[in-house]
Design a protein around this nucleic acid. Structure first.
Lengths: 210, 210
DNA sequence: GCCTGTGAATCCATTCACAGCT
DNA sequence: AGCTGTGAATGGATTCACAGGC
């Protein structure tokens, strides 16, 4: 990947957004798309779309538009979605179990290669997707053996930080955290937090008192 | 709720964030917290904390700090987390089922009052939480009867927009959408999107090619 | 003519630095 | 003295508006 001078973080978040309708467009034929149309499909402004894409190169043709197929390929390359990524997940409750079965992940190249829990009841159980639940003390070993670079945390909040530490210690470089606390990391390791109730509270606020 | 002139959206997102450690602090005793400490727990700057809170009033005491208990109460009031909200959810696959069982929601006052699916196999089944899965054609009726104001979408992407339309038509004022497409709404209805794979692609990008 | 690519202008959020209370 | 509350300054991201190329 070339030395990209300074890309706004929101931009790379939107690139992922753009790829969704592009995938659909490939199915449904039309080979060309305009920034205006793509913008509408994603709920952003056309100028935004053009600027975001321009950070990475000249993917369009002036006076014409963007070729859907090559645009998608470029975006996937930028994001790294044109390769496969091995994931592990810690905390096999309802949410964890739902995630490993989720087709959306696999379709985009994210493969769950190991699942962990601390509950002796769960350890050793095989899941519908074929994975067997492993004890947390095997994290380091399996992360190494399967070349896992991304970890997913779906534990209760009280143990999330400890689990994050275990993952970092095992060499994990990126964490997707579903527990409703901020986990702390070293700068070797990136974290993205997904907190459902934060989103709900957002909605509740906008609903006001009515 | 007072006429709040112009609150940045990120601010209200962070209010929800602040409430998490505050809840924990109430358990563990200490009645007072400084903006600096709260900031550290949430991974933001102290000035940010003070500014965010100041949008809504003077909750702290100069030279002293914030009283944990009253601060949490104020935040909850602002966000509307001091009341209960009835939710409905459409799409009872793995993810939907995991969400309705999630304790986190209930603890914050979000109560699932109805669950819908279009699969005849699933309709009529009772879930561990006690809800029975209803057919989508009862959305309007049940939304009305249970005074539901927030809808959650956990369907496959292809039907998400139709479902959103049904919800809006039924009078829903806010939607939490887990399907990986942008759903369009009227301005009577707010949407928050939660797209896991966008987050993963973010992480993959930051990992680069290594 | 038409739509992309892009510097300039605008808008918005965060940080700074200090005034104001206790 | 200490820490919050807040206008002013800074830093970034979005939008504008037009130049560039088919």
């Amino acid at each position: 990947m070339a030395k990209t001078p300074k890309i706004p973080d929101p931009t790379i978040e939107r690139l992922a957004l753009y790829s969704r309708p592009l995938e659909a467009l490939i199915e449904s034929g039309s080979p060309l798309i305009l920034s205006e149309k793509l913008a509408e499909l994603c709920g952003v402004s056309p100028a935004q779309v053009r600027k975001d894409l321009a950070y990475f190169g000249e993917f369009g043709v002036r006076g014409v538009g963007y070729d859907v197929r090559t645009l998608l390929k470029e975006i996937k390359h930028i994001l790294g979605t044109d390769r496969q990524w091995a994931l592990c997940i810690v905390g096999m409750g309802n949410l964890g179990s739902a995630l490993v079965e989720n087709e959306n992940f696999r379709k985009r190249g994210y493969i769950f290669s190991a699942a962990f829990d601390s509950d002796p009841e769960k350890i050793g159980k095989e899941m519908p997707c074929g994975l067997t639940i492993e004890p947390v003390n095997r994290i380091k070993e399996l992360v190494r053996d399967f070349h896992i670079r991304i970890g997913v945390i779906t534990t209760p909040p009280l143990v999330a930080q400890q689990v994050a530490n275990l993952l970092i210690d095992a060499g994990i470089r990126a964490i997707l955290n579903f527990a409703p606390i901020r986990v702390r990391t070293t700068d070797r390791c990136t974290v993205e937090n997904v907190d459902f109730s934060v989103k709900l509270e957002n909605l509740a606020y906008h609903l006001g008192t009515l």
